[in-house]
Amino acid sequence: MSDESGPDQGRRHALECMLWAGSGLLWSVAGGVPRASLIGAAQAQPAAFTFAHISDTHLGFNITPNPEPAKTLQQSLDLVKGFRPSLMLHTGDVTHLSRPGQFDLAAQMIGATGIETHYAPGEHDVVDEGGKAFFERFPQGARTGGFTSFDAGGVHFVGLNNVQDLQPGKMGMLGAQQLHMLEQDLKVRSASTPIVVFAHIPLWVVYQAWGWGTEEAPQVLAMLARFGSVTVLNGHIHQTMQKVEGHVAFHTGMSTAFPQPAPGSRPAPGPMRDVPADQVKRMLGVNRVTLVRAGAPLGVVTTPLEG
């Protein structure tokens, strides 16, 4: 993609990342400005490698606007199965309250899909006993503070934990150990390897007043700067948001359980309790992520449960 960047386009001109809202329009985001066009070439290209991204399943949530999040999780998993993904990422808040029964139900429902799934913990998953219940069930990263990495489909995946031992007044934190592991892990990859980084809290500052960001994001971005294709997938904010910085495309996923308000649009970031029951599924959904071609950014398509 670097050959497409003219000298006049500056660092914010980006590899285009695609958000395709499921309704026949292709969204391209360049320099942070989304624009829509009819689906064309991108759709026609064969998908070499596809994976799914789900987030914020919050099993145990039991109030409006969605008192039965297990039902909307099942709908989400049925959607995902339709994509025939090679694997699935879950960017955390598997449970609402870290209760064993909530973890067991999630593991059972997600396991029943037969799709290899990799988890990053959310703060709701590790709130008690240092995340014992989470790491017992999803042991990848249990001995590394949550850090995990693997290769699939020609893509290098890195999972991070930015929700452990959050400090007063601070946003998400990775800590020195994970930063070191990330540095060591990336050091041996070639710059042409597509990189996917996944973590719960956004790895850029979405809204500091609500803690929606990660303290060490600048260090992480610096480590990723030399790679031609970087896709960062997060959850936590229960809504889709995209940003492109250099060759790094950031995306957040919808929750499968309940929506949260746009940054600063309400006094507090809690669940949007007043969304009518017949509207809520438009605000819940999953992501399909596709490596369209080598060297290009991964295409991210958000599919809501309805609408």
Partner: peptide, 29 residues
């Protein structure tokens, strides 16, 4: 405290003088 769902409580007895700061580790703001 452990995680408190809606309606749940946590109590602590303060035996020593001074300023005791606290926060929510789920929402550190």
């Amino acid at each position: 405290s452990g995680v408190l769902d809606t309606g749940e409580s946590f109590a602590f007895r303060f035996a020593t003088p001074g300023t005791h700061g606290y926060y929510c580790s789920l929402h550190p703001t």
